[in-house]
Amino acid sequence: MLLALAAVPVLIAVAVRLSSSPPEPGRGPPFLDRVTQNGLFVSITALVVCIPLFLPLTVGVVAGDTIAGEANLGTLRYLLVVPAGRVRLLLVKFAGAAAFCLAATLTVVASGALIGAALFPVGPVTLLSGDTISVGESILRSLLVAGYVTVSLLGLSAIGLFISTLTVVPVGAMAATIVLSVVAQVLGALPQFEWLHPWLFSHYWLDFADLLRQPIAWTSFGDNALLQAGYAAVFGALAYGRFVTKDILS
């Protein structure tokens, strides 16, 4: 999955490189037009492309598999008989899912930076606020954006973990998690549900542009972190309530 994620920036960079006319501003994904000027923007463009579907897909697969996958293989009962401890197992599984979120976003960013540097000129980056920062600092900003996206995915990971405690069929848990992420984004796109939007875990997913200004505006990062922490707490508690008393019959 990480390989597939790494392929996205490569695909973008190669496509832009091979096309005769440079992309026009305002067409295609955000930041696409900047790629030809500075290869470092491949990372950001690729993240924007991956956030709505590809990243939630991979996170859904990993988070949905956490408990249900062990139950399906029959390894869950052996872990519990060891005894690994049910709460401990949940915590380790959530930490594992979070580690995957980080690995996934870092993969996209790193692969984007590498292919961008290989195919396009690399230089000081002009931020959205008009300021220019050095290459070194721009890499730092990319990592910051990766951190933002990682945090964004924690809520979904917690939802996946909870769903995974409900079933012994990992594919079902994966699909349900991915469907939920799509539903959240569909609801987020409908103005009729505006009252609901601030509560959707996908609400701040694409709001990392604030991190590309000078000075950095941390409000969206904070709002996002708070929302994701809320989701992690609620669904973590649900997963706990479900899993601690669950009869393990698989």
Binding site: G74, L76, V81, G85
Partner: peptide
């Protein structure tokens, strides 16, 4: 008292379950 008991118990429950 599961946490005190199970470390002293070895078990094979309903067939093996391992990561293939």
């Amino acid at each position: 008292r599961l946490k005190d008991v199970l470390p002293r118990v070895g078990a094979l429950v309903e067939g093996p379950g391992f990561y293939p």
